[in-house]
Every structure is written in structure tokens, then in C-alpha cells.
């Protein structure tokens, strides 16, 4: 009861004064200017790659969670110019590699071809020399995982979202189906 009251109080104050739900909705609806500048084919390629890593299952996958948009915006806005260029160059090189080995763009590949190509990328990344810089495969996988599990779909459906736990349970027994609590920051 105390928790519910406290939450009500906090939400009232914050929602009333600082960030009304309407404002949040507006902010979410406004497309990021960074996103608006992104070429459509790049977003389409990222969407298919991210969705191959985290596809639709019993919960929606990366494409549904718009992880490709997150990746494009974060690479543009949050990485240093060197890391940003490395990422886009890596994406382009990977697409060329796909065309060379599968005979077509990753976007046009079948699910089997995509999986085969990613298995190849994974094998190459694992055997890459340490001084060659982080392989694109790991860059892509890392940002896809982060983007998905911090998206609304990933955070609230794939994981167990508990924004206001209200208490601390230091020890509980779990089984093979227990989902992780969503990390919040």
C-alpha cells in the first residue's frame, strides 16, 4: 500500500510538472533528425541483420522493436568519428562479402542464406587476430543486443520489466524458464 501511494505521489508530481504523458508521446512521435538523414537501404540492411540475430519468437524480434533505427541513431550520435566510420565501413564491407559469397544482397537472401552467411562471419570473427580491431560481427551483435533489450518490446516483453520493485528480495529460487529482470541503466 505504501508503495502504491508513494508511486502515485511521485507520478503525480513528475507527470504534472515536468513530463506529462502527452509530452513523452510527442517526443516519441517526433522522428529523430539523425534518423531522417539515414539512407533507406542502410536501414533496411540493418533491420534484416538485427532481425537475423534476434528474430520473432514467442516475443517480437529486433525489426519489430525498431532496433535498426536505434543502431543508426546511436552510431551517428554517440560514437566517435573513428568508431562511427569503422561501423559504417564494416556494414558496407559485410554487405559486399554477402554479395560475393551468396550472390545477392543480405536483404534479398533467404533465411537459410542469411544464417549460413552469419555462421561464416562468426567463424571469421572468432579467428580474427587480436590486433585487427574489433570485428564487425561483434560490433553489430553488441549494439543489436543493447538496442533490443533497451527497447520497449525487448525490455518489457523479452525480459521481466520491474520499474518499481518496491522491495529487495536477496534470494529466490528460479527455474529454467525464469527471465532476467530488465536492467534499467
Amino acid at each position: 500500500m505504501q508503495r502504491r501511494e508513494a508511486l502515485k505521489k511521485a507520478t503525480l508530481f513528475i507527470a504534472g510538472i515536468a513530463i506529462s504523458p502527452e509530452l513523452i508521446a510527442k517526443a516519441l512521435a517526433d522522428p529523430s533528425p539523425t534518423l531522417a538523414r539515414q539512407p533507406a537501404d542502410r536501414l533496411a540492411l540493418l533491420a534484416e541483420m538485427a532481425d537475423t540475430i534476434l528474430p520473432d519468437t514467442d516475443t517480437p524480434g529486433a525489426k519489430a522493436a525498431k532496433v535498426h533505427e536505434f543502431i543508426a541513431v546511436v552510431v551517428e550520435d554517440c560514437l566517435s568519428p573513428e568508431r562511427r566510420d569503422a561501423f559504417w565501413n564494416g556494414l558496407q564491407f559485410t554487405e559486399q562479402q554477402c554479395i560475393a559469397t551468396q550472390g545477392k544482397s543480405f536483404v534479398d537472401c533467404s533465411r537459410e542464406q542469411r544464417n549460413a552467411f552469419f555462421r561464416q562471419l562468426q567463424a571469421e570473427a572468432k579467428s580474427a587476430p587480436n590486433d585487427a580491431g574489433e570485428p564487425f560481427w561483434y560490433q553489430l551483435k553488441g549494439i543489436t543486443l543493447h538496442g533490443y533489450f533497451t527497447s520497449e518490446i525487448g525490455a518489457t516483453q523479452a525480459l521481466n520489466y520491474d520499474p518499481i520493485p518496491g522491495g529487495w528480495i536477496p534470494d529466490m529460487i528460479i527455474d529454467d524458464n525464469t527471465k532476467a529482470w530488465t536492467p534499467v541503466f
Partner: peptide, 12 residues
């Protein structure tokens, strides 16, 4: 204080 991770432009 009550912003969800996905509500930040760059997820925090």
C-alpha cells in the same frame, strides 16, 4: 526519474 530506457533518444 521515471523515464524508461527506451524513452531516451539514445537509450541513456
Amino acid at each position: 526519474a521515471l523515464t524508461n530506457p527506451w524513452e531516451f533518444p539514445h537509450h541513456n
